[in-house]
Structures are given as structure tokens and as C-alpha cells.
Design a protein around this nucleic acid. Structure first.
Length: 253
DNA sequence: ATGCCGCGCTATGCGCGA
């Protein structure tokens, strides 16, 4: 089974990039982030030819937004991350398939909005950890894929790619990422001995490989045992008018 | 150590992304 994640930075601008990614890598499930459109504006017709079933969670105001496309049967089991009823940002989608529960996330960046901005990011990470523990305590096979907006370790960013004060590398951000691992989740790329960049800023960052590793796949123990590969589709990042993120994918035996 | 880029929008600049 192949699972994937792609921060598209506007799904309407990137529908054909997405279709080409699906054609190249044939994932069974792909989670999308940064739709930047309302639910009803999701380009379902434009993507109908791919043969995937899709479910979008959009947001008013052209921000955030997550979706899932799958060619295996699934049921949507959450359209929001529990724990903060006043949170209206579209950043979480969770599906359940025959074999596992899968979450697609767009974790808050944390660099805007001052103190409240970073506090929201950290609360969101704590809510994700709580949701994760619920699934693991129930011995439910569980995976989280998406844009975590976290460089877990110093090797996960090019020298000088971010200021040391950035929310993506803040010690408290990294501690909350580690909490997910201590809860029992495995960082798929790291477990396979690779830490590839998945994001390159617009401009010359891709040419100079000044990247960040911020798109991750975390796996519960039973799924981690089945992990065979992790890949980054740099072809998508090299296309014309690309997203600033490349799609990532994992294979489970 | 930032927004020179890109996106969406109550637009012709701004907030946001990372």
C-alpha cells in the first residue's frame, strides 16, 4: 500500500501537477494541504479523470484546507482535530480504511500572530498527541501524513535556510514533535536512514538545495513494521509553476 | 534572517506562508 502527502499551495493552481503525481506514483491514498479554497471550490471535476474518490475540507478566506484522494474504500472519521471547539481552521482530516486509520494534517506554521500564533501551534501539537494516544491505546493501526511545519533536528534544514528563532526549529516545537515519537509513532523517513528535504522556498532555493524536511509520515508500531520505502517526488518540484513543497510517499508491505 | 516569490482577496496593497 502506498500512502502520500502533498502540500499543493492552492489546489486550483496545482490540479494538473497533482494529476501528474498520481499518474507517476499511483498512491492508494494521498492527503493534500493548503487547498486555499472553500470546500465547494475544490476542483473535483478537473480531477475526476484520475479515478480517485475525494473528500475536501476547505475554509473561507482562501487559507488552509485539507483533502484526501483514495483509490481504496474509506470512511471520513474526522474533519477537525478534537480538543478545541472554537478552532475553525481546516487543518485535519482523518479516514478509516479496511486496514488502518489515517490522518492528513496541516500543522500551524506558528511564525505569524505573535505569542498567540506560536501558542496555537503548540496547543495544536498537544491535541494531535492526544488524538494519537487515543488511537494507539485502542491498538488501532494509525498513520499521520502531512505538512508538520517542524524540522525535527538540525540535519532537517539546510544551513541558513531559517533563522534560529524560527517557529519550525524552536526547541518547544521539537519537543512536541518528539512527544509524538515517545507516544509510539515512528518517523518513516528517519527510520529508513534518510532525511530528505521536502520543501524549497520559491526563488533559487531548489537549485541550491536550500531546503527543509517538514513533510512527514509517522506510523504506529504495526504499520512501522510494514514500512519498506520513503520517497520525495522532486520531479513535481522541478515542474513549471510548482508548489513550494514536493509530494512525499511511503510504501507499506 | 528576510518575503526578492506566490497565493487569495472585502485587492490596485496586505496578511500569510516557512
Amino acid at each position: 500500500m502506498r500512502l502520500a502527502s502533498f502540500n499543493v499551495n492552492s489546489v486550483r493552481r496545482r490540479a494538473q501537477h497533482l494529476a501528474r503525481f498520481l499518474e507517476r506514483h499511483q498512491p492508494d491514498v494521498v492527503f493534500l494541504q493548503e487547498l486555499k479554497c472553500k470546500t465547494e471550490e475544490f476542483p473535483a471535476l478537473e480531477l475526476a479523470g484520475t479515478g480517485y474518490s475525494m473528500h475536501a475540507v476547505g475554509q473561507h478566506g482562501g487559507r488552509n484546507g485539507v483533502a484526501v484522494l483514495a483509490r481504496i474504500p474509506f470512511e471520513v472519521t474526522a474533519e477537525a482535530l478534537p480538543g478545541e471547539e472554537t478552532d475553525t481552521q481546516a487543518r485535519y482530516i482523518e479516514i478509516t480504511t479496511e486496514s488502518a486509520t489515517l490522518a492528513g494534517i496541516y500543522l500551524p506554521n506558528g511564525n505569524s500572530g505573535g505569542e498567540e500564533g506560536i501558542a496555537y501551534k503548540w496547543r495544536w501539537m498537544e491535541r494531535l498527541a492526544a488524538r494519537t494516544r487515543d488511537h494507539l491505546d485502542a491498538f488501532r493501526p494509525f498513520a499521520i501524513l502531512g505538512d508538520f511545519n517542524v524540522c525535527p533536528a538540525p540535519d532537517d534544514l539546510a544551513p541558513g535556510a531559517l533563522p534560529p528563532t524560527d517557529a519550525l526549529v524552536h526547541p518547544e516545537t521539537r519537543a512536541r514533535f518528539r512527544a509524538l515519537l515517545w507516544a509510539g509513532m515512528t518517523d518513516a523517513a528517519a527510520a529508513l536512514g534518510t532525511r530528505p528535504y521536502t520543501y524549497w522556498d520559491y526563488g533559487s532555493a531548489f537549485e541550491t538545495n536550500t531546503g527543509l524536511r517538514i513533510d512527514h509520515a509517522l506510523l504506529s508500531p504495526d504499520l512501522a513494521e510494514r514500512l519498506t520505502s520513503f520517497g520525495v517526488d522532486t520531479e513535481a518540484r522541478a515542474e513549471q509553476q510548482p508548489s513550494d513543497h514536493a509530494p512525499v510517499w511511503i510504501d507499506l508491505a
